[in-house]
Design a protein around this nucleic acid. Structure first.
Length: 468
RNA sequence: UCCCCGGUAGCUCAAUCGGCAGAGCGGGUGGCUGUUAACCACUAGGUUGGCGGUUCGAGUCCGUCCCGGGGAGCCA
């Protein structure tokens, strides 16, 4: 293969490439002809949002024979010289010496056109949608965020831990689970086998599930390595059809020994600010696309997040604020119940207009592993809310006291025998520790302003959909 | 899962009170031009999501199913 230069590298230093010969490889976005003389071919190679304009002199038969076939979607390689462009809209262009057509795309049936498509339609062509401006920009921003996650934790001295995808505990208090089995539901094991236990014939010889969280296992490593994080796929079998839920998504879960809730909160704040800053610094072109065509307030929201300190309030204070707000909510605000979406949106979008961290939730509405506060009515939990998306982070200080944890498990009806290893962590060298979970897709939604989570993951899995 | 809205040409959409199914873009053909969502002319393209019903007549009204979107719950 010819050694090609990526288009973003040319745009990064245009003057250095002037009058130089380059080879580019990519896909034709548009072709405009000047029958008398030349064709204008815009090529995109995915390295950046912008296309590079290629000029082809059609009086040269070897070019004409290729150019006449070029249509939107064709894969090409172009060799030519970078020159200053006399036209408007671009400062440089490539004057083609040679054009190779690798893969033709029949314009009569190629689904992508030189026009706006609806996101719904693009979802039906998941194999082609990353070739659009918007979905390409999503992919680059998602990549930058993911890389920034590792950069942040590595510079802070965290270790990346791979927690299991398959687990055998199903009651972690985080929703419905997918079963993992090699048994054939169309031909289940015959009843009445010797021990009467169908799972004895299954692969793991007991019920197994796809993970809903790596937190409990991350706690194991936090209590050995000090500071760890997980970043991997997570699964929820909830039958929820919303613009904010996926059956398969990517979650980031840091877990830190010797961190209390306050330390946890400070980490969460510096973490979000770091990854958003990375995108603001390195993805300006892509962000501008979203600010122009998707969410006009995008830049202001992102810059506010980076600049301002998060508002921290207790759950009890939040309830008081909501009751005094004078807003007419569809759902009543009452201490002891979960805050509704409308309540969260009021706090972060109207009242404080920036990220809001709510701490110290009622014990009754939070999972067993959260640390019970001295008032015994609340737990050391934190939810971080951001405008448009709502809850982006959920975390807590974990209950490190053996007796209190056992009591919590009893109250929440969590079978202690299944969590012997988890309880053991409190029995042997227990230490205060904390952590939180952040859904990558929610973060990408927040960063791009896209309303539907199905646009921010390459291949969305939702109830009734596991295509591509 | 619940509530609301929608499904019309390849795509984005229109069609008044129930009365001949349309436009733009895209495709094809021809023309024109250092073009920029190029432009001009001509042209092809439809079981109006499926099934059933009301009616002289249904894209339009009724029932039902399927699919999509928005919102809610649950959560990240």
């Amino acid at each position: 293969m010819e050694k090609a230069i990526r288009i973003d590298q040319i745009f990064k230093n245009e003057t250095a490439h002037l009058e130089k010969e380059v080879t580019i490889q990519g896909w034709v976005r548009t072709r405009r002809d000047s029958k008398a003389g030349i064709s204008f071919i815009e090529v995109n190679d995915g390295s950046c949002l912008r296309n590079l304009q290629v000029i082809a002199d059609r009086s040269r038969p070897e070019l004409e024979s290729v150019v006449e076939r070029l249509a939107t979607g064709c894969a090409v390689q172009v060799q030519g010289v970078v020159q200053a462009s006399p036209g408007k809209g671009q400062s440089i262009e490539v004057h083609a010496e040679r054009i190779d057509l690798f893969g033709w795309a029949d314009p009569a049936v190629y689904p992508l056109q030189k026009k706006r498509h609806s996101f719904e339609f693009l979802r039906t062509i998941g194999h082609l949608r990353p070739r659009t401006n918007t979905l390409g920009a999503v992919a680059r921003i998602r990549n930058r965020l993911s890389f920034a996650v590792h950069q942040f934790f590595q510079k802070e001295g965290f270790f990346y831990v791979h927690t299991p995808i398959i687990t055998s505990s199903d009651c972690e208090g985080a929703g419905e689970v997918f079963r993992v089995t090699t048994l054939d539901p169309a031909a289940p094991p015959a009843p009445g086998n010797p021990d009467g236990n169908v799972y004895s014939q299954d692969f793991f010889e007991k019920p197994a599930y796809l993970t809903v969280s790596g937190q409990l296992q991350a706690e194991i490593y936090a209590l050995a390595l000090g500071k760890v994080y997980t970043f991997g796929p997570t699964f929820r079998a909830e039958n929820s059809n919303t613009s904010r839920h996926l059956a398969e998504f990517w979650m980031i879960e840091p877990e830190m020994a010797f961190y209390d809730l306050q330390d946890n909160l400070e980490l969460a704040q510096s973490f979000i600010k770091y990854v958003i800053s990375a995108v603001l610094d390195d993805c300006q072109e892509d962000l501008n696309l979203f600010a122009r065509f998707v969410e006009p307030t995008l830049m202001e929201t992102l810059e506010t997040l980076v600049r301002e300190t998060f508002q921290v309030i207790t759950y009890t204070e939040a309830v008081e604020i909501l009751k005094k707000s004078g807003e007419s909510f569809d759902y009543p605000v009452e201490w002891g119940t979960d805050l509704q979406s409308e309540h969260e949106r009021y706090l972060t979008e109207k009242k404080f207009r920036k990220p809001v961290a709510i701490i110290d939730f009622p014990r009754a509405i939070k999972p067993f592993y959260m640390r019970v506060n001295d008032d015994e009515k609340t737990v050391a939990a934190v939810d971080v809310l951001v405008p448009r998306v709502g809850e982006i982070i959920g975390g807590s200080q974990r209950e490190e006291r053996l007796d209190v944890l056992l009591k919590q498990m009893e109250i929440k009806a969590v079978p202690a025998e299944e969590y012997q290893w988890y309880v053991d962590l409190r029995r042997f060298g227990s230490a205060p520790h904390s952590g939180f979970g952040l859904g990558l897709e929610r973060l990408v939604q927040f960063t791009t302003g896209l309303g539907n989570i199905r646009e921010v993951i390459p291949f969305p899995r939702t109830p009734g959909h596991a295509d591509f």
